[in-house]
Amino acid sequence: MSNLSGKVAIVTGGTAGIGAGIAKLFAQKGANVAIVGRNEERGRKVLQAIEGSGVKGLFVQADVGLKEDTIRYVEAALSAFGGLHIMVNNAAVIHQANVVDTEEEDWERIIRNNLTSCFLGSKYAAKAMIEQKQGGRIINVSSIHATLSEPSCSAYTAAKGGIESFTRTLATELAPHKITANILAPGATYTELTTPMYTPAVKEALFKRIPLQDIAEPEDIAHAALYLASNESRYMTGSMLTIDGGYVMDGSLPGAVYWEE
């Protein structure tokens, strides 16, 4: 069983959805956890759950796409807990518009909040980990839509694809310091944002494509993050865990009958 006792983790976008699930599970496994987000009310609720696990927690209200805010939340975690061992870059926003209708400012906002935030979080977390000389874990959250197209979400898919390429280079650079960098690629997941989208018609269509015919809960993604954060994954870096019920790998044709006589 993975144990994070004595570890310190930062989780961006930790006030809801997948990020909250990761933060709570890390706390249950013994880590002191700093969550970063914009919504103070949600942040306080997650913080209460973290501290209810008997560990220390911290909520930092920040814009993860800004250098100064990134430095501030990393320094806040270091000051509160005395170190940093695990960085989870999970924060993300989405904008829906066809490519021809996407304004440049919307493109730049999505790239900044999804991809640049991942770069900044990785950079300043890595600096702290290198100075500690204890190794570390960086986990960057992508999406199956870095591989699959998602119409009307070109900036989002571009950012997620960038996260994957960036993480592989990051893993190579940080390996001499025993800091691993890996990727999580979730598929359909129930969160506060997405649950209203999963109407009966949408679920019916999804289940024709998802072999397990189910939608993930945040806890399903969190357990994969726990593995990447733990010592069990010490020899894994620059890799990706896809948690999607088999969506991406399935090459079958739903409803088709093969080899009819």
Rank of each mutant, 00 (worst) to 15 (best):
P211T: 02
Y198C: 03
I144C: 07
A175S: 13
G19H: 09
Y156V: 02
S122V: 01
N114S: 06
G82S: 06
V202W: 14
T15Y: 12
G21T: 02
A80Q: 12
Q96R: 15
G82C: 03
W259K: 14
P151Y: 13
N39T: 11
G14C: 10
F81C: 03
F207T: 03
M236I: 15
W107H: 08
A9C: 11
L120M: 09
V99H: 07
N3K: 02
W259Q: 10
N89P: 09
E68P: 10
R137M: 09
G121N: 05
K127H: 10
M236T: 07
D69G: 03
E173T: 09
P176S: 05
N32C: 12
S5K: 12
A27T: 07
E192H: 15
G17Y: 10
E204G: 13
I22A: 00
D214P: 03
C153Y: 14
I10Y: 08
A222D: 05
L58C: 00
D106W: 13
E105C: 11
G14Q: 07
G54W: 14
A146F: 14
A77S: 14
I18F: 11
L84F: 11
Y73Q: 03
A9E: 09
G251C: 05
G37F: 13
D69S: 09
T189K: 13
L241E: 01
K29F: 12
H145G: 09
T102W: 10
R112H: 08
E173N: 02
N114H: 08
A9L: 08
T172G: 00
I138L: 05
A49L: 15
R38Y: 14
L47W: 14
P200V: 01
V257N: 02
P254C: 05
V33M: 06
L241Q: 11
T102R: 08
Y227L: 14
S2L: 12
T189R: 06
L184E: 04
I50H: 11
A225G: 11
H177S: 07
D250N: 15
H223T: 07
S154E: 07
M236Q: 12
G13D: 01
I71L: 15
F26Q: 00
V74E: 02
E131A: 09
K203H: 02
Q61Y: 07
S233Y: 10
I183K: 00
Q28E: 13
T195Q: 15
N231P: 06
T242D: 08
S79V: 03
E51V: 04
L174S: 05
E103I: 08
N140A: 01
G162V: 02
G13N: 01
G121Q: 04
K24S: 12
L184S: 07
I94F: 15
P176D: 00
I130T: 01
H223P: 00
S142A: 14
R38G: 10
F207Q: 08
S143T: 09
A62S: 09
L58Y: 08
D214C: 11
E150T: 00
I130N: 01
V248I: 13
E219L: 15
A146P: 09
